[in-house]
Amino acid sequence: MIVTFTINGRSCQIDVPGDHRLLDVLRVNLGLTGTKEGCGEGECGACSVLLDGQVVNACLIPVAQVDGAQIVTVEGLEAAGGGPLQEAFVALGAAQCGSCTPGMLMSAYGHFLESLRNGDDPQDREGIRHALAGNLCRCTGYQKIIDAVSKGYEELARMPSLPPAAPAPQTGHNDPSHGGGPGHGSLTG
C-alpha cells in the first residue's frame, strides 16, 4: 500500500505492505540506520522514534498506521531542536557503545516535549528516570545518561521557544475537563 508521511521534516511516500514495521521501513527502505533494533518486541527502546511528538517503538508500529504522521528519528533530532541533548550526551559520557543512544535521545526529547505540553517540570530526576525506563542500556548504569538528559534540558530551557519541528501529538483526547498543554489534540492521523 502507498503510505505518505513526514520524516525528519521531509515528505515521503513509499509503497510497502502495510504490516511492515516502521523500523524496517526506516532502516531498509529509507536508509535511516540510526534507529537501532535491540529486541524487536518493544522491550528495549533502541528503536524509539518520535511519532507526532510522542515517543514510540518503531518495531511495534505497522507502517500503515503512520500514514499522514510526522516522524522524527535520531538523524533529524538536531533539526527538530534536540541538539543540546546530543551535545550533553557527548560531553558527559552518556554514550558508551552507542547502541541504546539514539533511542535514549528520542525518549529524552519526547519526555521534554511531553513535559512542555503538560506544564510539568522536565528536570525532576525521578521523572527522567521514569521517562527512560523503556530504554535498556547495558553499558552505563544510566547515571551519566540521566545527568546528560538533565544538562540537555537546562540548555533547552534557555531556548526562546518550542523548537519548530516539535509537533503536538495525535491523541484524540476529548476529556472535557482537561486543561491541556499547548497544541493538545489538534492533529489528526
Binding site: 540506520t33 540510526g34 537501532k36 535520531v74 533530532l77 551535545e87 550526551f89 557527548v90 559520557g93
Partner: peptide, 24 residues
C-alpha cells in the same frame, strides 16, 4: 582528563555504522 569520547558525535547523531547498518 575527561577527554570526550572521539566516537561520541557520530554515535549521538546515529551516524556510527554498526554491522547491521551495512548492506553491500
Amino acid at each position: 582528563e575527561s577527554v570526550a569520547r572521539k566516537d561520541g558525535p557520530d554515535k549521538v547523531r546515529g551516524l556510527t555504522r554498526y554491522i547491521d547498518d551495512h548492506n553491500p
